[in-house]
Amino acid sequence: MKQLAELRSGDVLDEKTLEPVTRLDLIKYAGASGDYNPIHTIDEEAKKLGLPGIIAHGMWTMGNLAKLFTPYLEEGFIQDYTIRFSGMVFLGDVLTLQAKLQEKDGEKMDFHVAAVNQSGTEVIKGNVVFQTYT
């Protein structure tokens, strides 16, 4: 595996495509995070709010996206992680995780990150500032 510090502006990390989202994924996340908002697990509750069905926790997607950086956590750490939840994730959706290095300033590496669904829509997007250890 390449060292993160070897990347140059414009370089991307290897994309990761997740398995289609299942109800069990969201039940597990509800249990692990303590976020039991029923819109993420119970169809009737989601429908009451005018949705076609349950939607993933935004924080589930944000948690998943960070794993692009996990293999590099001995080289540095995520100092800033900023996300805008711009779209909804439904059961069966297939998400692809992406990160592209925008700028490098000494030990700080600024990545644009996004999770994109099967239709090419960015469902969450933002930035990761990865601080490498000297």
């Binding site: 908002n37 509750e45 956590l73 750490f77 100092q79 800033d80 900023t82 996300i83 939840f85």
Partner: peptide, 17 residues
């Protein structure tokens, strides 16, 4: 309310892990 709110943005800033 515990229902119907939208989480629009989320930002973390860390000194260390």
């Amino acid at each position: 309310p515990n229902k119907g709110l939208i989480h629009g943005e989320q930002i973390y800033h860390y000194k260390r892990p």
